[in-house]
Amino acid sequence: MAWNEPGNNNNDPWKNRGGKDQGPPDLDELFKDLGNRFNGLFGGKPSKEGKGPGGIGISIVLVVAFVIWFLSGWYTLREAESGVVLRFGEYTELKEPGLRFNPTFIDKVIPVDIQTVRTIPASGFMLTQDENVVQVEMEVQYRVLDPKNYLFSVPDPTNSLRQATDSALRSVIGNSRMDDILTSGREIVRQSTREELEAIIEPYKLGLAIVDVNFKDARPPEQVKDAFDDAIAAREDEVRYVNEAKAYASEVEPRARGQVNRMVQEATAYKQGKILASQGQVAKFDQLLPEYKAAPEVTRQRLYLETMEQVLSNTSKVLVDTKGNGNMMYLPLDKIMQQQGVLPATGQRPATDYNTGSGQTTQPTQSNRPSRGDRFNDGRN
């Protein structure tokens, strides 16, 4: 009899294979069995119809799964980070630092540090403009400026920046002389490298900002290092000598200018003195001329006596008596007057008053000078 003929036949090969009920599972029976199992875990009794306490267990499982999913979506972005949100793999927005919610299996958040300053070294042997080989070491400091471009513009922005740095450095070194690179042109090389690097990375939109470029070291190859050290030392000596010469010039020049000004002032004063003295002599002769015209002989005699007075006042004088009885007697007037305290010790005899003969030690002036009549008076009436 066939297994599917009418009657109480229970020979379904899918339900009773091998002597047991091993047919393909029914979905209703499968859910019923799962409900009974979970119901047993939570203290309920199994239900043959899949209702009652078994349905409550499934609901509890779903609630627990939802709670786990909800809690797993919370995350925290640090102060230095910015979150790049991808919804089903597509960029949507940026998240600010703080406590945020991200629906699990829907959105993905990639934190990017946008404040930390990172460093890329660059070094190597390079050819200069004057066809010399120099070993240069440089360090580039950068930070992330745009997280979106940093993640999606190029596959590896750090490697791209490293290659751009090497290219910019070789371009600048190739247009510079070796002496400038090793000595006074280091700052120019550093600034030029930064400008060249920023111009190279701008079209690629790497999302990076150059903070600084540090020129660490530049030296010639070891084979010629001693010669270049001597050249650098000579250049430093040149700079030192120039500075010393400038300092010496700064010290001597003001002193020389002061001396020049003093000499000019002295010459001007001497000139003015001579002019005034000449004018005084002219005025004196202008006053003497009328007297000379009035009495030429008397004026001539007076001028002679005044001249002799001026000459004899600065010389030693001896009085000699030649009218004696064969003996010559002389009197050193200067010594006698010095012993009496009339003349100073210098030996210069001041002019005396010819009228009184008192030997008064007063310098003759225009006011106390004897008149012409008194000057020729020998004391006799």
Rank of each mutant, 00 (worst) to 15 (best):
L288W: 14
A234E: 15
V311N: 13
L343Q: 06
A277E: 07
L319V: 12
A256I: 10
M329Q: 14
S313I: 01
D321R: 15
K284Y: 03
P290M: 06
A295T: 07
Y292A: 09
A247E: 15
E291F: 13
V264M: 07
Y241I: 13
E306T: 03
Y330P: 00
V282S: 06
N314M: 12
M337I: 05
V320I: 12
T307R: 14
M263N: 09
P344Y: 06
G273W: 11
K335L: 08
K246G: 04
M308S: 11
S250P: 02
E309Q: 06
M308A: 11
E291Q: 13
L276S: 10
Q272V: 02
E251G: 01
L288K: 15
L343K: 03
R257V: 10
Q281P: 00
T299R: 00
G341N: 07
Q265C: 10
E238R: 09
R235E: 05
M263I: 11
V342G: 01
Q272N: 07
D237P: 00
K274S: 04
A283V: 02
V311H: 14
K246W: 08
G280W: 08
L305I: 03
L333S: 03
Y241M: 11
N243I: 08
L319G: 08
R235F: 03
L331P: 01
E309D: 06
F285A: 06
K274R: 04
M329C: 11
N261C: 07
N327V: 14
T322M: 13
V311D: 11
Y304M: 15
K274F: 03
R302N: 03
L289K: 10
F285Y: 06
M263P: 01
A294F: 11
D286C: 00
F285N: 04
F285T: 02
N261R: 10
V311F: 14
Q281R: 10
Y304Q: 15
E291M: 12
A234V: 15
V242I: 08
T315V: 10
L289E: 07
A247D: 15
A269T: 05
R240C: 02
G326C: 01
L319C: 11
E266P: 08
Q279A: 05
L319K: 11
Y248K: 08
A294S: 13
